[in-house]
Nucleic acid binder design. Structure first.
Lengths: 151, 151
DNA sequence: CTGATACTTAACCATGTGGTTTAGTATAGA
DNA sequence: TCTATACTAAACCACATGGTTAAGTATCAG
């Protein structure tokens, strides 16, 4: 039943797992619509390589392409991203919960400084993620208000 | 500079792109700690196959394994998930923004019926996506923008 | 018509992924 | 000590991925 969603998630996460593709999406996020060659220009790989990435993104439903004359412009679509977000959100509090227990010995690592946290979009989302956002980065942080799910 | 993060995202998204691995994570979310064989039991694949999945998850930093005697238990860690969330969040409104412009002709597609909308997490997100959420699943069957490759 | 531009297809290659079976190591228990 | 249990390692396979080069096809500009 939830199978279609499942496959959509597969493709979405798989599509997002490549830095080139994430960069492509990011550019489309800023420019809203770019031709294939404009899109490909900044990357050090061949056009066909970019084409394949665009195929993957199209396949995942993350972008659409429309041809006008001989040029093809790409634009973002959002639904799959949403699904991905939903999946992550669904388990978010479980993770934060576990994180608290693990925090002790996982808190080393090589993290770069808080990277801009650029958008206000964060504000909406933060309502859902604050509970762990705090504990995860600023560890220490006593038990977050997040509810204890199991047991 | 942001390179480490980048690779971490690669691995995180890649790890999440497999349904078996998502299911493993989900179970760990509910049980908090399970042995390798307990973890593997419900799945129709061989133990070594599960082992490989666990390798991938470990590699992505999504779980940790600790050995006690001859059994190995797995637990979740949360940071990579957070990063993934952050990445998605960062672009969330760009997408919804673009989606609004696209809504018109993207509203076909083959999406399954509104599937349970399981968590309240959705409510927060909806603030960002509502505007298109409605129009997006109208499903009207116009011209499928899905690529017409040949000819 | 000619040629450049914009994209697509095809063929190929190296590597990675998800799975198998088979064999191994290590610990718990009789 | 012997054996079952719990996990790991190795070798192999089919197929997907990310890249290449080279050869199309289609459209716009002269």
């Amino acid at each position: 039943m939830v199978k279609y969603q499942d496959e959509a998630l597969d493709r979405t996460f798989a599509a997002l797992s490549d830095p080139t593709r994430r960069a492509l999406l990011a550019r489309l996020g800023e420019q809203r619509s770019l031709s294939v060659s404009e899109l490909a220009a900044p990357f050090p790989v061949s056009l066909p390589a970019i084409m394949k990435h665009l195929d993957v993104l199209t396949d995942a439903g993350l972008i659409v392409r429309e041809k006008t004359g001989r040029t093809v412009v790409c634009r973002l679509t959002a639904r799959p991203m949403e699904q991905a977000m939903n999946w992550l959100n669904r388990y978010a509090q479980f993770w934060s919960d576990n994180l608290d227990r693990l925090a002790a010995f996982v808190e080393e690592e090589t993290w770069p400084p808080p990277p801009s946290t650029p958008l206000n979009a964060r504000q909406q989302i933060d309502q859902a993620s604050r509970s762990r956002a705090g504990s995860a980065r600023g560890r220490k942080k006593s038990s977050p208000p997040g509810r204890k799910p199991s047991s």
